[in-house]
């Protein structure tokens, strides 16, 4: 067998296992932040809406595709929030996500800047606060804000100090895919519930609800700056296809593709990204706003997870054992 590939200063060797951890560190970091924002904006919406609107907390559970475990008696606000924020047994909770960040960044220590270490510990400490502060409306907002701020600071530090090498690519791709995924799920559940057949009681508040949808993915401000009214079609088009705002599905996928281009053997993953791109392009938002948004979002989610699959088989668990020359 002739030699193998050599490392170069621009192209340091990255173990598949470490790449996988960098990718998951990105995903978990984004998940923790996204979940915190989601709970926060939903809390605000619930406060804004009249009780009669019948808006409960179940939609939030649907977003993360989880159900309350037997340890919770009722679908109360406190139970749902506790499950989504503090429950270590829930793979989609903020705590679990931060545990995931902590673990994966430990694995990737060798490729992560030392400055991040302190923040990770801090984030971990906030997340594991014994008091379950998210459950109480009085402390919830502050705790969620702290989580979001710490996540953002950590992202910023990693962005600013990490060498833009393969590890950084995987980290960024993980973040972008998680973000695209979250925006899609929010659309699926949050907006889907509202656009399909809004209950009579909620009808007067659809504007509020759309605003909440945008807020939950941190895009309300950006959207308003466009000066368009918050019609379902305009909002949908914006959430899916806007290519300036960093949290729309399109922006996330474009950004992921951009970083995939930096990696070797990226053909399959790039193709999967392109498939999501054309899927978005072909979306008829007029139709979707009154039609099968749920089915659309499902298909979009599947298309996004296809990118994940390709990344997984190409770099994390390559089937081939051939030595590259």
């Amino acid at each position: 067998m002739n030699g193998s590939i050599a490392a170069s200063p621009e192209n340091p060797i990255l173990l598949s296992r470490v790449a996988e951890s960098a990718y998951w560190a990105g995903r978990y970091l984004e998940r923790a932040e996204g979940m915190a924002r989601l709970i926060k904006s939903h809390s605000e919406l619930v406060i804004d809406l009249p009780r009669a609107g019948g808006l409960g907390w179940e939609p939030l559970l649907a977003v993360v595709g989880t159900e309350l475990g037997p340890e919770y008696d009722l679908h109360t606000e406190e139970a749902v929030v506790d499950h989504l924020a503090h429950n270590h047994g829930n793979p989609g909770s903020i705590c679990t996500a931060i545990e995931g960040v902590h673990y994966n960044l430990r694995v990737t220590r060798s490729v992560m800047p030392i400055e991040a270490a302190e923040l990770i510990i801090e984030l971990h400490t906030i997340a594991n606060n014994d008091g379950r502060p998210a459950n109480d409306r009085r402390t919830r907002r502050q705790w969620l804000t702290n989580i979001m701020r710490s996540c953002q600071t950590l992202s910023a530090i990693l962005n600013d100090t990490m060498t833009h090498d393969d590890a950084f690519s995987f980290f960024t791709i993980g973040r972008q895919l998680e973000r695209a995924d979250l925006t899609t799920r929010v659309l699926d559940v949050h907006a889907g519930v509202l656009t399909g057949r809004p209950t009579d009681a909620l009808a007067p508040y659809t504007g509020l609800c759309w605003a909440a949808t945008l807020r939950s993915v941190s895009m309300l401000q950006a959207f308003r700056r466009r000066g368009v009214s918050a019609s379902p079609t305009a909002t949908l088009e914006f959430l899916l296809n806007d290519n300036n705002c960093p949290r729309t599905v399109r922006s996330c996928i474009d950004e992921a593709s951009r970083w995939l281009l930096e990696l070797p053997q990226n053909h399959e993953a790039i193709t999967a990204c392109a498939a999501v791109g054309s899927f978005l392009e072909d979306a008829d938002v007029e139709e979707l706003a009154i039609g099968d948004l749920h089915g659309f979002a499902d298909r979009l989610e599947v298309a996004i997870s296809e990118i994940h699959q390709k990344i997984h088989t190409t770099w994390f668990r390559p089937a081939t054992t051939a030595v590259l020359s």
Binding site: M1, G3, S4, I5, A7, N11, I13, L14, L15, S16, R17, A19, D166, F170, L263, P264, W315, P318, T321, A322, V323, L324
Partner: peptide, 21 residues
């Protein structure tokens, strides 16, 4: 351990760019 693989009596590690001796 899972990063290493022996091929033809030579030790390699699995990287995103292939096996590296």
């Amino acid at each position: 351990g899972s990063d290493l693989q022996v091929v033809d009596n030579i030790v390699y590690m699995k990287t995103v760019r292939g096996l590296v001796r």
